[in-house]
Each structure stands twice: as structure tokens, then as C-alpha cells.
């Protein structure tokens, strides 16, 4: 398993509490980069600007990755462009939402 796959797998522990779907299957994670060996830079979005769970979810992503042995620095870049749409969800995510 590559480090990127490990990061994605770990991120599946971060759930959107309203939908009860993890941030990966919900399609909120846009990009994962490693500027340095133990530094992960996550570009992500939320389902809607002004989401009341804004801080909770981005902090959750940070906490969850900081726990990984291979990672010592995490930065989360929250973006609104491109805007999230249901098309970004994985088949698993769509299934969980009943579609």
C-alpha cells in the first residue's frame, strides 16, 4: 500500500455526521500531496459553503492524519472551487445515500 493509499484509508474514519458517510466516499477529498517526506497537504471541500460542520470536519481530517506514524505535519487546504457535486461521490457513497 502506498502512503497516499494509507492516507485515504485513514481518512475513511472521518465521517460527515449529518450524512454518516466518510469524507472519501463523499468525494470531499480533492487532492493529496506530499511536499516533503513526512508532510501531507490535503486539498478538500465541503458539501456546501457555510456548512455548520466546517471546522469539525477539517479538524477531523487533520487529527486523523497526525496520528499516522509516517506523518509529522498536516496541512488542510479548504477550497470551494470546483464546487462539490454528487458526481464526486464514490459508488459506495452513493449506495449509502440510497442512490
Amino acid at each position: 500500500m502506498t502512503l497516499k493509499e494509507k492516507v485515504l484509508s485513514n481518512l475513511k474514519r472521518v465521517m460527515d455526521p449529518e450524512l454518516n458517510i466518510n469524507v472519501v466516499d463523499l468525494g470531499l477529498i480533492y487532492d493529496i500531496e506530499f511536499p516533503e517526506e513526512d508532510f501531507v497537504y490535503v486539498t478538500m471541500t465541503l458539501t456546501t459553503p457555510g456548512c455548520p460542520l466546517h471546522d469539525s470536519i477539517t479538524s477531523g481530517v487533520k487529527y486523523c492524519l497526525e496520528e499516522m506514524e509516517e506523518i509529522s505535519k498536516v496541512e488542510v487546504n479548504l477550497v470551494w472551487e470546483p464546487a462539490w457535486s454528487p458526481e464526486k461521490m464514490t459508488p459506495d457513497g452513493l449506495k449509502q445515500i440510497g442512490r
Binding site: 474514519r13 472521518v14 465521517m15 455526521p17 449529518e18 454518516n20 455548520p52 460542520l53 471546522d55 469539525s56 470536519i57 479538524s59 477531523g60 481530517v61 487533520k62 487529527y63 486523523c64 496520528e67
Partner: peptide
């Protein structure tokens, strides 16, 4: 939920809003 669990998300399993 925000008051009680927002700092726990990502660290351990937290209840959903439901």
C-alpha cells in the same frame, strides 16, 4: 454534537447526528 464531539472527530468513533 458540535460542542461535544467536534474535537473528537478523526480521533475516535463519534455518533452521527441521527
Amino acid at each position: 454534537w458540535t460542542a461535544k464531539y467536534s474535537k473528537e472527530i478523526g480521533k475516535k468513533d463519534v455518533p452521527s447526528l441521527k
